[in-house]
């Protein structure tokens, strides 16, 4: 039931998370920051704006990105397989990339291509994470994992660590905000969207927050307090990282993911498999 509610209200929830994040970020920089409801004010403002579009295909892909992202979350929360949810996420990336490369703007095209680099950095690790959940709890089912009487975080600390550093890649946070790179390619895939269509992409990104933090929550098993604690910790850690680091090159991101994070996760899986 609560899964269904979270799925339905994901955009609203994501908006709140986004609002809180902006405040936390501002406080870290000794600013007051916008009110919590600022994303929603933005929402209404953007919906009211006159829509400028490049062409219909591009605008449509913005909407498809939002739908695909929402549907992916539904698959994660209402389905019974983590792995399918991981593979579903590729559909959202497809919509974003097709949209980004459909316009003749260097910024957008470059952003779309960099989005692909993001994908090869986090996708294999998500698969490994799903597998290690299976090894510990005996199921890919999110409900079984959430009723698992144990502490997955203590059995897969390296996977958690790897995932912690992959989150900036998924949520476009510094040092891995390479596809968006505001100072460099001005938002990348989202630069050419405006008005309601931009809002669709923007809301899609809110839903991505819920998607990612659901995975973090799973690390607590049936100890929900631990799950919530982990989510809060991750949230603050990612923002701290975002505020304190400079952007890296995309090559460094891919290398970091492939030569540091994935081996760590594999090592963890080997240890779990031997322990059983």
């Amino acid at each position: 039931m609560i899964n269904l509610l979270i799925t339905i209200f994901a955009p609203v929830l994501g908006g709140f998370v986004f609002g809180i994040e902006r405040i936390i970020k501002a406080r870290m920089q000794s600013r007051i920051g916008p009110p919590v409801l600022q994303p929603f004010y933005d929402f209404f403002k953007l919906m009211d704006k006159r829509a400028y579009i490049i062409h219909s295909l591009h605008a449509l892909m913005g909407i498809m990105y939002f739908i695909a992202e929402w549907f992916t979350l539904a698959v994660l929360l209402l389905g019974n397989d983590l792995l399918i949810a991981v593979f579903f996420h590729v559909i959202a990336v497809l919509a974003l990339v097709i949209g980004a490369s459909s316009v003749r703007s260097p910024y957008s095209v470059l952003g779309g291509l960099r989005e692909l680099m993001h994908m090869i950095s986090y996708e294999p690790l998500m698969v490994l994470m799903a597998v290690s959940f299976y090894l510990i709890t005996g199921s890919f089912d999110i409900k079984t994992i959430l009723s698992f009487n144990g502490y997955p975080i203590f059995q897969m600390p390296l996977v958690f660590f790897a995932f912690l550093l992959v989150i900036p890649m998924m949520l476009q946070k510094s040092p891995f905000d390479i596809a968006e790179a505001h100072q460099e390619i001005i938002g990348g895939p989202e630069i050419e969207y405006s008005g309601p269509f931009y809002e669709a992409v923007y809301t899609g990104k809110w839903i991505e927050y819920i998607y990612v933090f659901t995975f973090v929550f799973l690390f607590g098993g049936n100890h929900y307090w631990l799950g919530i604690l982990l989510v809060i910790f991750t949230f603050i850690f990612v923002n701290l990282l975002d505020n304190s680091t400079a952007r890296l090159d995309y090559r460094k991101m891919v290398k970091f993911s492939w030569f540091v994070l994935i081996p760590l996760a594999v090592l963890n899986i080997i240890l779990i498999a031997m322990w059983r």
Binding site: R50, A51, Y52, I53, I54, H55, S56, L57, A59, L60, M61, M64, L94, A95, I98, V103, R104, S105, P106, Y107, S108, I186, I191, E192, G195
Partner: peptide, 19 residues
């Protein structure tokens, strides 16, 4: 995603991409 682009026409103002 693969069929709709041929049929959907949004009624909006068209602009050039930002460059």
């Amino acid at each position: 995603i693969h069929i709709l682009p041929y049929f959907v026409k949004f009624k909006a103002d068209f602009v050039q991409p930002y460059n």
